[in-house]
Design a binder for these strands. Sequence first.
DNA 1: GTAGGGTTAG
Length: 563
Amino acid sequence: MNTWIPSPMAAAARSAIKTLNYLLADSDRTRRRTSRRHCTVATTDNCENLISRLSSIAKRFPKPFSPPPPPPGAKPWRPRPYHYHALMKAFSRAGHPDEVLRLLREMKESGCKPNLLCYTTAIHSLVISNRPCDAQALFQEMLMNGVQPDAASFTILVKLFPFHLKHFDSACIFLGCMVKSGSNPDVVTYSTLIAGLCRAGLVDDAWRMFEKMLEWKCTPNAHTYTPIIQLYCSRGGIRLARRILDHMHDDGIPPDAVAYNVFVQALCQARKFEQVETLLRESDEKGWKPDGVTYNTYINGLCKAGRVEAAFDQLEAMLDKGLHPTSVTLSILLNSLCKESKVVQVMWLLERSSLLGWFIGTDGYNTMMSRLCESGQWVAALKLFADMVKKGVCPDTQSFNIVINSLCKGGKLGIAKCMLRSWGFIADSVTYNILYCAFQTAGRIDEFHDLFSNMDVSLDTVTYNIEIDYLCRKGRYSEAVYFLRSLEDRFSPVVVAHLTHGLVKGGKLGEVLSLFRDMLSRGLVIDYCIFDSLIRAFCQKGSCGSMRIYKLGVILDIMLQIS
DNA sequence: GTAGGGTTAG
C-alpha cells in the first residue's frame, strides 16, 4: 500500500521533526557527556565481543524498542517544560490541538509541571481550532494550578469574543480582570479586542475601545486600525476607510501593505480600478510597498469583473516589480479562465507555466477540477485527476474531496467509497460532509455510519448544518432544536442561523422565539448573520400576510432587545 | 530557549 501523506500532514511532520531534532541533539549531548565519564577505552577484541553480545541481547528487546537504562550514576534524561513547549507549538501550528492536549497530559502524568508557556500554547491551539469551551476550561485549570496568566495569555482569550462575549461591557470587564490580576493590557490586547468587536460588526464599541486605549496611554499601530478599515470597507464605506488611512498618515502611524490591501479589496469590489491604479502609482510616495497579496487582490478583482486581459497585464506588472506570482495568483487566474470556459487560455497558461518558473501543482489542478465539478463536468474532473497523478503531481486531501464529490454527483457512491479507503488517504470533515449529504440523499445513512465508524474525523459547523437540514426536511423540528442544544458550541451563530431558517420555513416561530429568549438570558448577542438568514427565510416563504409580518416584528424586537 | 493581534483565492 502506498503511504501517501497529504501536504498539511507533511508540513506537520516537518515541523515536528524540526523540533524533535533539537530534542534528539540534546539527548545526544547528554549521552556523550555520560559516556565520557563512564566508559573505558575499547580494544578491537572486546569491540567484537560487545557487538556480538549486543546483537544477541537485542533479539530479546521487547517491541517496541525500549532504551537501555542509563549507566550507573548518570542522571536519566528527562524532557523539561521547554522541550514540551517546543513540541506543543509545532503541533499547534500544524493544527493538531488534540496532540497538544495529549502532550500536556503526558507532562502532568510524568510529574513535569506545565508552565505558563505550555498552558498558553495549549489554550491558543484550542482557540484557533474553534473550541472555545475547551479553551476556557483549560484557562480555569491553569488558574487552579496556581499558574498566573500574563498579557499574552489573556490576549489569546480575547479571540473568543466573536463566540461569546460580543458586548463592549464584557470587554471592559475582561480588561478589569486583567488589570486586577496584575497584567496590563498592551497594544496587542487592545488590537485583538478591537478586531473581535469589528468581527461582530460592533463599530461603535470598537471606537470606544480605541478611545479607552488612548486613555490608558497605549499607542495604536497599523494592526489596531486595520480591522476598523476592514469593517467600513465591508459595509461599502470606502470614503470613511480612506479618511482613516489619511488620518493614520497625519497621526504618524503610516498604513502598511496589509491596511492598503484591505482598501484595495474594497476598491476592487466596487470596481473602482482607476483608484487602485492611482494607489499603486503613489505607493512609493506614501511609503508603502505593494506585495504579492496586493497584486493577487487586484488580479482577482479584475478577473471577477471579466477583465481577464487586464488581469494578465497586472501579472506582468507584478513580475516587473520583482514579485513572484504564487499558487494563489495561479489559482485566481485558472479559476477565472475555467469559469469563462476559456480552455485555450488555460492551456496557454499550463504550457507556459514552467517558462514562468511556475509549477502547476496541486492547487492549480484542484482549482480546475473544482470548476469542472461545479459545472457538472464530473467525468472531465476525474480525467484531470488521473492526468495529475500521471504527471507526478501529488494530490492532497482537497483533490480527493473534489474527486469524491464528482463521483457522488455522478451517483457513483460505490467508487467514492473505494476512494475513501485508498492510497492512505486521510479523510477530513469536508470528506465526511460530502459523503454524508450523498448517502443521506440516497437514503443509505446506515451504510454511511458504517463507513466512518473507525475513522476519527472532527466535525464542523457544515456537518451540523447538514444534520439540521435533514431533520427540518423530515419535519422533525424538535429533534433539530435538541440536536443544536447537544452541541458543545451550541450557540454558534452560523448553526443558529441555519436552524432558525429551517424553523421559519416550517412555520415553527414559537421554537425560534424560545431559542432567542434562551440566548439573550445567557447574555449572548444575536449575530447579524442570524438576522440575514431569518429575513431571507421570511422572504422565501413569502410571508406578506399581516399576521406573519406582525410576528416577524415581534421576533426582531426581541433580537434588538426593544421589548 | 520561549507564547498573543490586522489582508488575498477556493
